[in-house]
């Protein structure tokens, strides 16, 4: 199921048609691939290349630049503990150690049951709630070691299911709008407005 099929293919094609240049859809399509498979598979990279007119090397080159895109399977929950300056000043590293103990894996690894992947992350813009934690990019904070253990428990019991979808699902709100106005139509509209603009400028000069 690594290539897009059925409804996912429809979403993928819609994404690619949204932009003046389909290549702009590469990152959104990689997110879509993660929504489908939890990570960006090689087949998905090749398929994305076909959809946007790029080579596999180019799609991979772009995708591998970004930390959120994974190329190996990760846990159902990717837990990021921020250790950047503001969190560090409020115990970020201590929390990371505690998290590592709680989960039994060092940062960068996935628990044996495949549920949790622990990561050390850079500032996630949640500094007033330092030390901050993100679980599948949903934010929590401030978190201490007890609170972390509690969070893990809640994730396991399904208590947080509504707030935290499985890894890969990023935006649960789909674009609900007519297809973008064709650029040619906007160009014509632009030309009209520019002419008006110039007329106004001219009349001011008179």
């Amino acid at each position: 199921m690594a290539r897009f099929e059925g409804e996912m293919l429809g979403r993928a094609e819609r994404l690619a048609s949204l932009y003046p240049d389909p290549r702009s859809a590469i990152i959104p399509l990689c997110h879509l691939a993660q929504e489908q498979d939890g990570y960006v598979t090689e087949e998905a990279i090749a398929h994305i290349g076909e959809l946007v007119g790029a080579t596999g090397a180019e799609v991979q080159g772009t995708a591998s630049f970004y930390d959120m895109l994974k190329f190996e399977p990760v846990g159902k929950y990717v837990i990021g503990v921020c250790t950047n300056i503001s969190c560090m000043l409020r115990g970020g590293y201590e929390l990371l150690d505690a998290a590592s103990n709680t989960l039994g894996v060092p940062p960068g690894e996935t628990t044996a049951d495949g549920i949790f992947t622990l990561e050390e992350v850079e500032c996630v813009a949640h500094c007033d709630k330092a030390p901050a934690v993100q679980i599948n990019y949903r934010y929590f904070g401030p978190v201490d070691s007890d609170a972390f253990a509690e969070l893990v428990g809640q994730l396991k019991s399904g208590e947080l299911d509504e707030q935290v979808p499985e890894h890969g699902t990023l935006i649960r709100v789909l674009r609900d709008a007519p297809p973008p106005i064709p650029l040619e139509e906007i160009d014509a509209e632009r030309a009209r407005q520019d002419a008006e603009r110039e007329a106004r400028a001219a009349s001011r000069e008179v």
Partner: peptide, 8 residues
């Protein structure tokens, strides 16, 4: 009951 943990 989440103690000091709060949402975004």
């Amino acid at each position: 009951g989440l103690g000091r943990t709060r949402s975004g």
